[in-house]
């Protein structure tokens, strides 16, 4: 039982990060109808920016702010410089360009910073609190949970409760109608990419200190799992990303604890297959799906 509580608590923190990264994929899908296969490499680049600033200033928070800004800039730059120039209504060019971007970014990061793992220090202790002698979440886990939850809540408010969010949604669902209502649709796509990559960068910034350290591939596994999470939840559904993120985080943690770490990716894959068999659009896919 103690072990279960420990694993579940750890799964919760991991799930929040997964959910945030999955939400970032949902955002770029919903605002620009793109699956960004370069999300991990872009987030890794943003984490390197944070790493460099923290190393130079000694401040974790300055690094965090830089990482978020770098993520937003990378997202906006990728949309303006690359994605916007691709032919519309065909997903393949976007995927190919994103894969090219992955190679360029990862090679560039390896050249600039070296391929080795750079340790990143968390701003709070990673020693778990003991509750009744059982180790549960650490202060850093709590920070991770709070940061991910706060950003997800802020994004939900932005999208659902503000005029800007209304324009972002309209531009994604019905670009031509939105333009006819004066919405600057290209700008909304840029903003969607910026928000998406910034959110992914935050997820990566929260994760990396708990792992081996920073290297150009440090975010790859998070991306793979978060992609599965986004598909499980429904690519169109922010709530689905949250639900599936927490669920998958728990699953990964429990399987890792009770079976083995190498079984965890299989468990995620099995869960995704199962969900897709039962609900091809994902858990919370909208009823009236739009294809364009």
């Amino acid at each position: 039982m103690d072990r279960f509580v420990f694993l579940a608590a750890a799964g919760l923190a991991r799930g929040a990060v997964l959910a945030l990264f999955a939400l970032s994929l949902v955002i770029v899908w919903r605002t620009a109808r793109a699956v960004n296969f370069a999300q991990a490499a872009m987030a890794a680049a943003a984490v390197y920016a944070a790493f460099a600033v923290t190393a130079a200033t000694g401040s974790y928070w300055a690094g965090l702010a830089t990482g978020l800004a770098a993520g937003a800039l990378l997202g906006a730059g990728a949309e303006r410089g690359l994605m916007r120039r691709l032919p519309a209504h065909a997903p393949l060019p976007g995927i190919i360009v994103a894969i090219g971007l992955v190679m360029v970014l990862q090679a560039g990061l390896a050249i600039a910073f070296g391929p080795e793992h750079r340790p990143m220090h968390p701003p709070f202790s990673q020693r778990p609190f003991l509750i009744g002698g059982v180790p549960v979440l650490s202060p850093y886990d709590l920070f991770t949970l709070a940061a991910a939850a706060a950003v997800m809540a802020a994004l939900a408010l932005l999208f659902n409760r503000t005029p800007l969010g209304l324009q972002l949604r309209a531009a994604a669902f019905a670009p031509e109608t939105a333009r006819l209502l004066g919405v600057r649709v290209p700008r909304m796509a840029t903003l969607g990419w910026a928000l998406s990559v910034a959110a992914a960068s935050l997820a990566a910034l929260l994760l990396v200190p708990t792992e081996l350290g920073l290297n150009p591939h440090a975010v790859d596994l998070l991306f793979v799992n978060a992609f599965a999470v986004a598909v499980i939840g429904g690519l169109d559904s922010p709530a689905g990303a949250l639900l599936a993120g927490i669920g998958t985080g728990l699953l990964v943690s429990l399987v890792t604890g009770y079976v083995s770490a190498s079984a965890a990716p299989l468990a995620v894959l099995a869960l995704m297959t199962l969900v897709l068999l039962v609900r091809p659009g994902g858990l919370l896919a909208p009823k009236e799906a739009r294809t364009a």
């Binding site: 005029p163 209304l166 324009q167 309209a170 209502l181 004066g182 919405v183």
Partner: peptide
């Protein structure tokens, strides 16, 4: 939401 979208700008 549809209605207000027309007047946001």
């Amino acid at each position: 939401e549809n209605l207000r979208l027309g007047g946001l700008w």
